[in-house]
Amino acid sequence: DVPNRGWTKGEIVNTFRDIFKTNAFGKKLILIVILDEIDILLDKDGDGILYTLTRTDNVSVLSISNYLDFKNLIKSRVTSSLNDKEIVFPPYGADQLSDILSERAELAFSDGVLNDDVIPLCSAMAAKEEGDARYALDLLKNAGELAFDEDSEKVTSEHVKMAKDRIEHNKVTEIIQTLPLQQQRVLEAILNLTKQDEEISSGKLYEEYKELSKKDAVTYRRIFDFINELELLGIISTNTISRGRGKGRTNIIKLQCNENLLEATLFSI
């Protein structure tokens, strides 16, 4: 019986061990544990759960991650008993994405509603986004919704292109709205310099940022962290150029999202 206070992790593990030892169901038992996005689990829990599982008899662990280097988060005490076999799945290609979308489209759309070029276009666009199946499905879903809103009898390639714009709009807006205040100020500084048609070096960016932040400004070194984080989010890009002998190298920063969208989002917060 489970007590009112619940079970501790140790009690749960010991219960499984007892079941395996007593062979309670009259057959050899194997517990298969599937850990999806294991890198997030390891980041929060360390490798405590894996340590316990790899030292429990009759337990097999299947871990899934989008990152090839997630095993760097696992200490040697665990990897020694993990005895793992690694299988790498490449990103989906356009043909595979097309198969996925065709299967879903049979369930979601009436016959003849999709123009012949809709699924190939969604697949091709998603293949450019590292073979992201979720993105392909989002494109198809949004294209269908846009066609429905227009009371159109067909979903066309134009609806797919509009869907792409809508998804990118929502993505950029959500990212900007959830950024910390200081990063929003850095973006505002980049926007101001972009509108002035200025070449944006890190030094020039910091001066503009200080004007916006006044006494609340962070250090110049911290700005580099913000630039790296914004680049990882795909909102800006950086390019290191050489100024010639004796003048060193400079980072040039450019916006990678629509100026009007960025301005509207920043000033609506």
Rank of each mutant, 00 (worst) to 15 (best):
F16K: 08
F16C: 12
R17A: 14
R17G: 12
R17I: 14
D18P: 01
D18S: 14
I19R: 13
K21Y: 11
N23Y: 11
N23K: 15
N23R: 15
A24D: 14
F25L: 15
G26H: 13
K27T: 10
K27H: 12
I30H: 04
L31V: 05
L31S: 02
L31T: 02
I32K: 04
I32P: 03
I34E: 10
I34T: 11
L35F: 09
D36G: 12
D36T: 13
D36A: 12
E37N: 12
D39V: 00
L42G: 06
D43F: 02
D43T: 03
D43P: 04
D45M: 08
G46W: 04
G46N: 05
D47H: 14
I49C: 09
L50E: 13
L50N: 14
T52A: 14
L53Q: 05
L53A: 07
T54W: 05
T56F: 04
D57H: 10
V59Y: 07
V59I: 14
L62Q: 10
S63V: 15
S65H: 10
D69F: 05
K71C: 08
L73N: 08
I74A: 08
S76H: 00
R77A: 09
T79A: 07
T79E: 09
S80N: 13
S81D: 11
L82P: 10
L82S: 15
N83P: 07
K85Y: 12
E86C: 02
E86W: 01
E86H: 00
F89I: 10
P90K: 00
P91K: 00
P91A: 03
G93R: 03
Q96G: 07
Q96W: 00
L97Y: 02
S98H: 05
D99W: 02
D99G: 02
D99C: 03
D99R: 05
D99L: 09
L101V: 09
S102G: 08
E103I: 08
E103A: 12
E103P: 04
E103H: 07
R104L: 11
R104E: 13
A105C: 08
A105G: 09
L107Q: 11
L107V: 13
A108I: 07
A108S: 10
A108V: 08
A108Y: 06
S110L: 07
S110N: 13
S110W: 04
D111E: 13
D111Y: 08
N115I: 01
D116K: 12
D117L: 04
I119N: 01
I119C: 02
C122Y: 06
C122A: 06
S123D: 08
A124R: 06
M125I: 13
M125V: 08
A127T: 03
K128S: 09
K128A: 09
E129N: 11
E130F: 14
E130N: 15
G131Y: 06
D132N: 15
D132Q: 11
A133C: 10
R134A: 09
L139Y: 01
L140Y: 02
K141Q: 07
A143E: 10
G144Y: 05
G144C: 12
L146F: 11
L146Y: 07
A147H: 02
A147T: 07
